[in-house]
Every structure is written in structure tokens, then in C-alpha cells.
Design a protein around this nucleic acid. Sequence first.
DNA 1: TCTGGGGTCCTAGGACCC
DNA 2: TCTGGGGTCCTAGGACCC
Length: 419
Amino acid sequence: MFGLADCNSFFVSCERVFAPFLRDKPVIVLSNNDGCVVSRSKEAVALGIRMGQPVFQIRDLVKANGVYVFSSNYVLYGDMSHRVMETLRENVPSIEVYSIDEAFLDLRGIKLSELDLFGKDLAYKVKRNTGIPISVGISHTKTLAKIASKIAKKDSKLHGACFLRDEKDIRNVLKTFPVSEIWGIGREYSKMLLKNNIMTAYDFLLASPQWVKEKMSIVGLRTWRELHSEPCISFEESIKNKKQICVSRSFSKELSDIEELSQAVATFATRAAANLRRQNSVCYSIHVFILTNQFKEGTYPYYRNSIVTQEFPTDSTIKIVKGSIEALVKIYRKEYSYKKAGVVLMDISKKDNTPSDIFYNDEIQKHNSLMKTLDDINSRFGDNTLVTATQGVNKLITFSNYLSKKYTTSWDDIIEVKI
DNA sequence: TCTGGGGTCCTAGGACCC
DNA sequence: TCTGGGGTCCTAGGACCC
């Protein structure tokens, strides 16, 4: 049996832990730059606020209904996520962390007859230990467990957990479950299925496997089989290394100066390089992209990207910053103003697998020890203690006008809260 | 000038997830 | 005025090789 533990309105729930009066109030959390809605409380959903909706479209609604608004506080959410995962880990043989607010559960060793109660108890423990409400779904496959957790979320009588076991029960649930809400079926496939008169998960179940494969490739077929209780997606205990590492941001104002743009790109490159070293990998290619404001009327969006490939694979911030600036210079045109930029590291491999003679190279050895020192200092004294000269000392300008405190990780904020 | 059959690798684009 | 950021996988088509 597969379990799925899914935090309810995770970012909103994190804010509520430290501001309990927000319980039962409409609350939303915004994306970077306070651009879009990325988390909504039940009450906010009821007001018709959509996931991903741009904030400026709902200004009046927010004002009229006293919706509480937060900028995203990733330091807080990351720490709270960690706490939730710890409680899960203490209670099951192993977990697969699937995203910041979700984990699949390995339920080996728990009797079938006790699983439903076990799920409810797990939800209770997580709420008690962390303050975060979760929904637990349990069934024969990951896809069905996902559905079960959604059922648990919708029906408060289930007390946080739903166990889908018998074939007959599963079919009854699928009959009322919209096909568009199935894990693995997104907007495009939903449209196609609806056109073919497939509205519910049960309708999809009845489609022929040949038809599903023809229309949705083997990925769609896998979903179909999972709904038939045949496990196709396995439990992945270990965290896999990333095959590409991307750091990108929109700017709060448009940038046209190459100096400003270089500082931003150098900052992205620096973060990406640190992530690369954290997973003990090296990369060959550095991909940089820039784009103008795609929403501006009367102008064509300008998008350019370029890739710089290194002679030897590297994890050095210095080399990666240098490469990304080289790439930027190739695509930069001074007549445009840019709204967004990003750096993607590609052709990633494990550092240990790199032919060792490369690392006898003096220069690379120097970079290795320099990067180790840089990482040590930045982890002790904060991320921007040491930076490259290209990056400059100016912080990236982004909006976050509704930021809460770093309640769980910053001494200053903790002291302030106590007072 | 036209003519075959098979294989691999790479890339772009499209779908999906949170 | 204001529109997020970070990933994965699959497929089709082209280049290239023998």
C-alpha cells in the first residue's frame, strides 16, 4: 500500500501557525514580487480566488472581504516543511519527499485492518507536533493514494485520512472524481478527454488501453493502469540529483543596463553553483536566458538564450559566473528593457565520476579549495557574506511588501515576537 | 543521377508536476 | 502600475553513420 501525506494550503497554514487569529479567515500567499496567488485558505477559495491568479485582478475582492495577504516567506516554509517531514519519518518505515508540502509513505509492516486508523493518527500527530493540518491518502498505487488524500481533504468527517481498499469502493469514488483532478492529467489532456466524453475518473477507467496509449503516450497509459490498482510508479526513497539546476527571477522594474543585468545574472549563477556543489556535481554547460515583459501591449516579447560550454566540467562559482556573463553578452541588445533573466546549469554529472586526471590540474585544485572556503564562510555567516565582484553588493530588487517574520530561524525575529 | 535499410544521438517542443 | 519559479519525461524529426 502507498500512502500520501499532503499539507492543506501549506503556505497559508505556515502563516497561521504564528498568527492563530487567522484561523477561519480568508488568507492568501503571493509568489515572488507579490505577483500571483500561490496558496489560498478554504475561505479564500470560497471567494473565487483562483490558484495562480495575478493579484492586481483581485485587489477589490481582497479589500472588500478583508482577505489577509502575505508575501512568500520561503525560509519559514522550508523550515516548517522540515518539521512535518520529521514527524512523518518518525512514524513510518520510510518516506519519499515529493515536494515542499507532500511526501509518499512506505507503509510496510502495518496491518491492513489498521491502516485507516493509522492514517488518522498520523494526521493528528503532525498537527500536534507542527501545527500544520495534513490529509493522508492510502491505496494500492500512488495515483490512487493521491485521489484518496484529496477525498480526505474535502470531507472533514474523515478526520484527515482516507483509505481506498475495496475495488467496489474505489469505483464508486472514481465515479464522482473529475478526470481533470487526476495526478498526471493536466489542462491539455483534460480538454481532449472532455471532448471525447470522458468526464470522470471512472469514464477514463473504462477507456481502452490502446486508445489511451495512442492519445496520451505511455505516460497516460501508466496513469490508466495505476487507476486499475496496478502499481507502475515506484517508491523512490533516495533523493535523486538534479539533471538541471535553474535559478531565475522576474525583476520588479525592467532593466536595460548591461551592468545591472550582469549583476543579476551573476547572482543567479552564484546560487545555481552553490546548489550544484550541494549535490556534489559538476556541469559542462551554462545556459543563460533573458526576456522582455511578455504582457506589455503593443510590443513583441524579446526572448534570447545562449549556451556556453566549459572545456572541463566545473562546480566553481568563479567559472560559472564568468561563463554566464559570456553568454549574456552574446544575447544582450541595449535597445530592449528586460523583465526576467535566468541561469540554467546543464550536462550535470557526479563529481566523483569525473576522470580523476582532470582534478590533478592545479588550477582546478585551487578552485576546489577556494569554493570549499566560500561555502564554509557563507554557511556560517549567511549566504551573501562572500560574493563575486561581478555580483556586486546591490541586492536584487524584488517586491515583498507583506512578508511575515522568520519565526523559526532568525533570532532577531524570535526576540521581537517575545516582546 | 538515382537508389536502401538500419541505427544512434541530439534538440525542440509539448505534456505534466509542485 | 501590477502577471512566479523550479523541475521531469516523452516524442518526433533531423543529422549523421555504416
